[in-house]
């Protein structure tokens, strides 16, 4: 039932290796922190874990098998910059329902105002957009969430709000999570254990 990276290596084109021999195993209901200085490949690793990139060495497996290549992925990635993760020409209602029919209670818990649904991304703030990205990623089919600096751009109240929703999913349905963050107080608060990339 685990999300597992074994001996993962990755580089872009013929460039230098960004990742080498990376191992990580996350079980359902576990929250694993990933920390380290910038430029050490944390974001690349997040993309590999979520299936956006195929590792050149080693492999990423879910339940001992490969990540599914099509359809809704059970491993969802929430990016640091929500404005780069939504289609700028779509209304937010379309972005929100791209993957699943998001229920209203989740939107309520995330503090999404129904009035935002008609708007385009450039009319919302990063914090407002990120609530949509979290809602979009938390389908019942999602088994693992990779949060790459998910609340780095947000104010403290919104940060606490989004993490309460994610941590509820961790507790209630055994969502596993990988948390990439530079903020030690946040890592200390939500993670069971921390992997340091140096």
């Amino acid at each position: 039932m685990n999300l597992k990276a074994a001996g993962v290596g990755f580089r872009y084109g013929q460039g230098p290796w960004v990742l080498r021999d990376m191992d990580l195993e996350v079980e359902p209901g576990a929250v694993v922190g990933l920390s380290g200085p910038s430029g050490r490949g944390k974001t690349t690793f997040a993309r590999v874990l979520a299936g956006y990139e195929t590792p050149l060495e080693g492999k990423v497996t879910l339940d001992e098998g490969p990540l599914p290549r099509g359809g809704y992925s059970p491993v969802q990635l929430v990016f640091q910059h929500p404005e780069r993760a939504v289609n700028p020409r779509w209304r937010l209602s379309d972005t929100l329902t791209e993957g699943w029919d998001v229920d209203e209670s989740l939107l309520g818990a995330l503090g999404v105002d129904p009035a935002w649904l008609d708007r385009y991304p450039n009319e919302l703030s990063g914090g407002e957009l990120q609530r949509f990205c979290v809602a979009r990623a938390l389908s019942p089919q999602t088994r693992f969430l990779i949060a790459d600096e998910m609340t780095t751009m947000l104010d403290a109240v919104t940060q606490a709000q989004l993490w309460r929703v994610v941590m509820d999913a961790v507790k209630e349905r055994g969502l596993g999570a990988v948390v990439i963050s530079h903020e030690k107080p946040l890592i200390d608060k939500v993670c069971d254990r921390v992997v340091y990339m140096s």
């Binding site: 935002w116 104010d155 403290a156 109240v157 919104t158 940060q159 107080p185």
Partner: peptide, 24 residues
């Protein structure tokens, strides 16, 4: 005060809702 209390190092306590919608 709520902002201060929501900091991970000060309790990580959210308050419900969001800022009011601009048309209401």
């Amino acid at each position: 005060r709520a902002l201060w209390e929501a900091l991970p190092s000060n309790g990580f306590k959210p308050i419900a809702g969001s800022q009011p919608p601009l048309d209401a």
